[in-house]
Structures are given as C-alpha cells and as structure tokens.
Design a protein around this nucleic acid. Structure first.
Lengths: 123, 123
DNA sequence: ATAGTTGCAAAGCATTTGCAACAGA
DNA sequence: TCTGTTGCAAATGCTTTGCAACTAT
C-alpha cells in the first residue's frame, strides 16, 4: 500500500477524533486540509484501511457506517437520545464467547456487542 | 394500524422462514402471492411492523438490512462462509449487561450481540 | 518507468416518498 | 364516509466505479 498524503490525512483525522464519524463527516474534516479531496478518495481509503486492519467500520443500524480509528476489538455504547457513540473501556468477554460456543455447539471465532442507553451528557 | 391483506401476507412470509431475508427477498416471496405488490408497500410495512415491535430489523454490516419475524430479543450467528444467519437458542445475558453497566458506569438499558464463525453446513 | 492513487462525474443500490386511486373500519 | 394504505414512479442518500491525469517508489 503506497503512502499518499490523502491517505495519511484521512487516517490522522480519524484517529484524532472520538466521534466515530461517518464517511461524509470525515470528508468534511479532510477537506479543511486538502480542499480538492474527493468523496471517492475518502471512501476508497476507508475501505482499504479497514481491509488492512488499521481501522474498523461500525454498522450500527443507522443510515451510514461509522468509522473507528481504533482497530483493537472493543465494545460500543450508543446513546439513544443524542446518537453519540462511545468506546467501552473493557476487554471483550472472551470467556463468555467460549461459553456461548459451548452452549450452542457453534464454532464461534469472534463476536460483537453493542450497548444502548442514555449517555452521561444527556441524563 | 389497519389490517390489510398485503400486511398480513408480508408478516406471514417473514414468520414462515428462518432465513432472515432482506426486504428484496421478501418482496419476491410476497409477489408470488400478490403479483401486484410494490417495493414501497413491503418497505413501508416492514418499518411499521418493526416500530410496533412485531418484528425486528438486523443490521449486520452487509449491504442491506435483514428482517427477523421473531421479535423476542435473541442473539444471532453469522456464517462467514455462506452468509447464513442463525438464531441462537439462548436468553440474552442480562446479568452480563448489568455487570458491564456497573463497570463502565453507563446507564445501559439493552444490548445486542452478534457472533461470527463457520456454520455446521459449511464445516 | 509503472503500477497504485487521485479527482471528477456518473452509476449503483437499497430505501424512501409524493400522489392519486383504493379499501378497511 | 374518511383516514390509512397501496401501486407506481421518481427521488434520496450513501457508496462505488470508470477513466484519464497524476505520483510515490
């Protein structure tokens, strides 16, 4: 994967926010630094970086995907009031996954969990 | 909510399959019984039934949403080989949710979990 | 030099919507 | 009757893609 200025800026902007932005949000941010950047470039690079395992894509049932600069597996919390998405500071429950595998008899290699409620700012 | 033939057939077809179909799949099925049914009607009814709590929508990161005629909260398993989605026969881990809430300090009211691996048919 | 990347615009797709005709209650 | 619903087609909105001009290596 060639190192381009656009790619570098996209990754920096994604890593520099906690907001789990959508591709469109990120496009706006990147455009402040590279006014001629295109949607295509943003989308292509997000997909590439995701496929490389450098970032992760969140599909939370909204319209559009959200993106997370932290590739380390972790859970998320979505505020049902403001829509904010927070990272949970805890390791994924590996033991629980194994228990579920045992109880269902399925060959489970990974899992995802999302939590919902009202965030501290909205309470 | 008025009871219409279209609505009834859509619900029956969804409840009559274990395949967690996409809206388009369901449209095809319904069309075999009501040849003049439209996409709009299928989409509108799926949304309505979901909002009423009669069915649930699954957003598993694919392109399109999948639909589940079983509104009772339950986990899902996605086969990474064939894409099949299976219902897990176990109650959601309420105790675990409470533990996560305690550990993160967040007001969590519900959670979702999805498991991934290779299904029995593909192994 | 040359294969990967960009910007642009057009295309793709799933989903939504405006509207007039229709049909449950 | 009268408001909710349908079929149709057009419109949305996010995401992808073809292509010629670049550019990192």
């Amino acid at each position: 994967m060639r190192q381009t200025f656009q790619r570098q800026v996209i990754l920096e902007e994604l890593r520099g926010t906690q907001n789990h932005p959508r591709a469109g949000d990120l496009y706006q941010r990147v455009r402040q630094r590279i006014p001629t950047v295109s949607f295509g470039t943003v989308y292509r690079n997000l997909r590439l970086l995701r496929d490389q395992g450098a970032i992760q894509e969140l599909t939370l049932g909204d319209d559009a995907s959200r993106w997370d600069g932290n590739a380390h597996p972790h859970y998320h919390f979505t505020c049902q009031r403001c829509g904010r998405v927070l990272d949970l500071e805890m390791e994924p429950a590996q033991a629980w996954q194994e228990e579920v595998a045992r109880r269902t008899g399925l060959a489970i290699t990974q899992h995802r969990a999302e939590f919902y409620g009202v965030c501290p700012q909205c309470r």
